[in-house]
């Protein structure tokens, strides 16, 4: 599943971390909201247990603290997902947009909000819900954060979620309870403010 979309939505703040000494969760937190906009290209491989080839897709995305997530899959077929705390919109090819609003599916958005709170580096929530393993490489250029859910609902869905980054978030690996695995790699990060045209992407 593309739970990573949720993760990405709530991950803007984790895109930047310090390059100092051994990284702590506090340091991650401190850096979390410095950059209001991040763009990146992505490749995703979805490995389904028992199937020979992964499902491969590519595209680009923008995360804005103010506007939400804009996720555009370009291959193997065009799909655009826009998401904020009020609504989610999916467009496939030339088909009409499909929209779900928070007031129509409060349970869903409650769940999103839970994850958002977690990945917005609410340390208390993070430690309450996950067993955490934060480490960095010898030269502190890269860090890895492993999240192992401790309680429902997350532990019904995920075995673990692994985030790897340096200055930016570089990779998300999701190991889920169906023994499927999703690997998303981000490249070509940019952090300039949104252009006027880009703002309209979130409409």
């Amino acid at each position: 599943m593309k739970n990573f979309l949720i993760l990405c939505f709530i991950l803007p703040s984790i895109f930047f971390v310090s390059n100092g000494q051994a990284i702590t969760l506090d340091e991650l937190q401190q850096k979390f909201s410095q950059y209001p906009v991040t763009r990146a290209n992505f490749t995703q491989d979805r490995y389904i247990q028992g199937m020979n080839k992964p499902l491969h897709s590519t595209g680009r995305m923008i995360i804005s603290q103010h506007h939400g997530l804009w996720w555009q899959q370009l291959t193997p077929f065009a799909l655009t997902l826009k998401m904020n705390d009020q609504r989610m919109q999916q467009i496939i090819g030339q088909q009409p947009p499909q929209i779900i609003r928070a007031d129509e599916q409060p349970q869903l958005f409650q769940f999103n909000t839970l994850l958002a709170a977690i990945f917005n580096a609410d340390k208390i929530t993070l430690e309450k819900n996950f067993q955490l393993n934060l480490s960095d490489s010898d030269n502190a250029q890269k860090w890895q954060l492993i999240l192992i859910p401790k309680m429902a609902p997350l532990n019904k869905i995920f075995h673990k979620i692994t985030l790897i980054g340096d200055q930016y978030l570089l990779q998300i690996t999701i190991d889920d309870k169906q023994n499927d695995k999703t690997l998303i790699v981000f490249t070509d990060h940019q952090t300039l403010p949104l252009t006027e045209n880009e703002k309209h992407l979130f409409d």
């Binding site: 779900i100 599916q105 869903l108 019904k156």
Partner: peptide, 12 residues
Amino acid sequence: IQYWLMCFITLL
């Protein structure tokens, strides 16, 4: 779309 998204709930 709500079915796709409701997976999070359904899985629970």
